[in-house]
Amino acid sequence: MADSALTSLLAERSILLDRTATDRFDAVRQCGAALVAAGAVDESYVDAMIQREETVSTFVGEGVAIPHGTLAGKEAVKHDALVVLRFPDGVDWEGNTVSVCVGIAAAGGGHIALLSQLAEILLDPEKAEQLRTATSAEQVYALLAPDEDED
């Protein structure tokens, strides 16, 4: 069961597991739209996300990208939030294939624990595979929930 800290950052309706995208910018725009829908950012943040992607790719390995805005785009953030979009057919990301995008809006540091947990997942090929093939929000929450033994 997902705890409230996790669900307040990553709402169940922000977990969209069956998406298709024409290219990586389309995927980033969809992440942006999900953050707008979550009430986390103003529309202008989506452009900041595109800008960031054009400058430096947010691909982080294991079929995962973490689209987010620029420093200037931070002003458009209303509250920290994450979205998880899955693209079962994969999206070409400058030669890499991305199946999962974790879209980030952060003005503060509320998302740090969750991103550390994401790093743990990506360092574990089995868990990374589970994330790439997740078909329910429960599975995503189970993967992203902080480990009990963490301090």
Binding site: R52, I66, H68, T70
Partner: peptide, 10 residues
């Protein structure tokens, strides 16, 4: 990182 909210945090 550029914004200090994504990759660098991870």
């Amino acid at each position: 990182c550029d914004a200090g909210m994504g990759s660098s945090v991870m």
